[in-house]
Simulated scan of single mutants.
Amino acid sequence: MTEVMSLRTPMFMKKILIVEDERKLARFMELELTHEGYTVDIVSDGQSALMKLMSKEYDVCLLDLMIPVIDGIEVTKRARAFTDIPIIMITARDGLEDKVKGFDIGADEYMTKPFEMEELLARLRALFRQKNDKSLEKVLTYKELTLNKETYEVTRGSDRKELTKKEFDLLSYLLENQGIVLTREKILNTVWGFDFEGETNVVDVYIRFLRAKIDDDYEEKLIQTVRGAGYTLR
């Protein structure tokens, strides 16, 4: 029993948003996913989905296309303006044109109803593996900024930057998630750890430290503040 729990423990930090107006299907998916160790929220319309995606951190969104208020296609279009969260479209539409359209507007996966739960779980595992592979890269780059995890060297163009360990960890996390808006809470939990008991403004303080070393001497600023949301590299 202990071994099973230890294998599933990492999944408890994975949060999934289900956007589905078929109550029985949504409930079935919720039960199966929570059994696998995921945390699940459910909404039944597109407007509620966008509000959830803007207000909370999720690791993946399971999105039905034929939902009320705002359909799944429009939800995906709008969501891609502020988040790179993986989106798995789940729909009864199985035509090639529908699938191509889904991928073109930003979906990561496309599943047709009815589907087997084991297939959905496998696709989720594959998505999370891809994300983990990014964090295992030894050299991270963004424009002229380069960070080497093995040598602890950071350069911008030809300029070498001397960072403290925590500054290095923070920059590494930003580079691993470039283009994604990271909330202060998410940065704090990842870089400082869930058991950190200091002030949450430590994130803002270290962002200022990083900017002083990475951005202040350059015309183009790489570390961006998204008002009311967090920080990102873009």
Rank of each mutant, 00 (worst) to 15 (best):
S135Y: 02
S135C: 07
L136M: 09
L136H: 07
E137F: 07
K138V: 11
V139K: 13
L140Y: 01
L140T: 03
T141F: 02
Y142D: 05
Y142M: 13
K143G: 15
E144R: 13
E144H: 14
E144W: 12
L145V: 06
L145A: 01
L145E: 01
L147K: 03
L147A: 08
N148K: 12
N148T: 09
N148C: 11
K149C: 15
K149M: 10
T151G: 02
T151C: 04
T151F: 00
Y152C: 07
Y152A: 09
E153N: 10
V154T: 06
V154H: 00
V154N: 00
V154C: 02
V154P: 00
T155F: 06
T155D: 03
G157T: 08
G157D: 06
G157K: 05
S158F: 05
R160V: 10
R160W: 04
K161E: 04
K161P: 03
K161N: 04
K161Q: 10
E162Y: 09
E162I: 13
L163D: 01
L163T: 01
K165M: 08
K165S: 07
K166F: 14
K166Q: 13
E167A: 09
F168Y: 06
F168K: 00
D169L: 11
L170D: 01
L170A: 01
L171Q: 00
L171H: 00
L171I: 03
Y173G: 03
Y173P: 02
Y173T: 02
Y173W: 11
L174K: 08
L174Y: 05
E176N: 15
E176C: 15
N177P: 15
Q178L: 13
Q178V: 15
G179D: 05
G179L: 09
I180Q: 12
I180G: 12
I180E: 14
V181P: 04
V181C: 10
L182P: 01
T183N: 09
T183P: 05
R184T: 09
R184V: 13
R184H: 08
K186V: 14
I187R: 02
